[in-house]
């Protein structure tokens, strides 16, 4: 079983890297970009009997820092 975890900074938490990417896109002439948020994708190879609840626990304990980040789990 495989799972994909998306980790993003929460809304309201400044994302200076995303801002820098937005500026760079603007400098390249992409003038329709109104905002950029940068996050992480973490792919997990899991044993067949792993559950979504296991992945959620991994997110809570390590993969995301819920003070600043939100996450979503996608089973593949």
């Amino acid at each position: 079983m495989k799972a994909r975890v998306h980790v993003m900074l929460k809304n309201g938490v400044l994302d200076p890297q995303g801002e820098a990417v937005r500026h760079a896109l603007g400098a390249l002439g992409f003038d329709k970009v109104e905002g950029v948020r940068q996050g992480k994708v973490i792919d997990l190879d899991l044993a067949a009997d792993a559950t979504e609840a296991d992945v959620t626990e991994m997110c809570e304990k390590l993969l995301a820092n819920t003070v600043i980040e939100s996450y979503s789990v996608e089973l593949l």
């Binding site: 900074l9 938490v13 400044l14 200076p16 890297q17 820098a20 820092n65 003070v67 600043i68």
Partner: peptide, 17 residues
């Protein structure tokens, strides 16, 4: 210490990058 939860909050990338 913030990651362990002993202290509250978190440290983000510097605003000026």
């Amino acid at each position: 210490l913030t990651e362990t939860g002993i202290l509250p909050g978190a440290l983000l990338r510097n605003a000026g990058l």
